[in-house]
Design a protein around this nucleic acid. Structure first.
Ligand SMILES: [Mn+2]
Ligand SMILES: [Mn+2]
Ligand SMILES: [Mn+2]
Ligand SMILES: [Mn+2]
Lengths: 152, 152
DNA sequence: ACTTAAGTGTAGCCAAGGCTACATTCCAGA
DNA sequence: TCTGGAATGTAGCCTTGGCTACACTTAAGT
């Protein structure tokens, strides 16, 4: 009933053992997934701080399309991780670490949008898809993107 | 204390109201995130079925780099959603809907890897990053990718 | 000064997706 | 045929990230 294995995997170059490599890739993707929240929040808070002068939890919630308790809970996580500070009923602020992360995240976001546009993706799709894809682009990929855009 | 707003957003073309659009984008990204598991599982199960002749939960777990109870729990979700079937101690199988999804997911996966390679991303980075990014590429983006690769 | 609406915070629920520990079943080799 | 190890399944715990409901502050407007 069990046919002889034809190849190791359909998503893998032939002859190469799929298991450990593939597991590592999935592991990386899982890590990245759990970091997406933190990254989106700091980027957005930094955005609000520089364009509106303040970042209030309601604004964060509205921009993200979630309820305010959800936003507050995640902001609590940012505080735990040393990325943000907040005093009750005041606004939210970023620590130096938070700002640093925000800037890196925004640069990456923009780079990815640029690349998508440059290969012909329509503006709105590029912006929307980048919001998800950005969290999975490795350094190697970002460098390649930059080089590609540069050498156009 | 509150400076006049300079622009609506740093991640948004000037003058355009950021809030609703941005919230929709984040919402789309959240939906996509919750679908990643299902997509990766059906693709992997289909892979195992065609290359090994059977898909056992232990294999799925090992390939994904998770423990077998975690895999089993997710496979239960696939069954609930009508994508897979399994009888105790036999293997896992895909319903027609599951197969259909698996094939679409694999095609998308490959297309994204191809695009990354074509803009100069190194092979391993392309494979690894695609595992995450694939779940966020819209139809419009996939079409653009295909067109770009075609017109090279 | 009062009143009221918006903003903020807290409590408690749920599902997803990890994990460990333990129980059961299967099957291959002795 | 027996039996031990691998595979499978179950139970129960944790964290994350959603939600609603309700309580408390703040700040405006009258
Ligand atoms: Mn994002
Ligand atoms: Mn972003
Ligand atoms: Mn994937
Ligand atoms: Mn994939």
């Amino acid at each position: 009933m069990k046919e002889p294995p034809l190849s190791d995997s359909l998503t893998q170059p032939a002859g190469m053992p799929a298991e450990p490599t593939q597991a590592q890739r999935f592991g990386r993707a899982r890590s990245a997934r759990s970091a997406t929240q933190v990254e989106d929040y700091v980027e957005l808070i930094d955005d609000l701080l520089t364009t509106q002068g303040e970042a209030r939890s309601t604004d964060v919630a509205r921009r993200l399309g979630v309820t305010h308790p959800s936003a507050i809970k995640t902001i609590a996580r940012l505080k735990r991780e040393g990325l943000a500070t907040a005093k009750p009923y005041r606004g939210i602020f970023l620590t130096p670490a938070g700002q640093e992360l925000a800037h890196r995240v925004r640069a990456r976001h923009r780079l990815i949008v640029e690349l998508l546009l440059s290969v012909g993706v329509p503006r709105e799709a590029a912006e929307a898809d980048a919001e998800g894809m950005e969290h999975y682009a490795s350094e190697a990929t970002l460098e390649a993107f930059a080089a590609f855009l540069d050498g156009k």
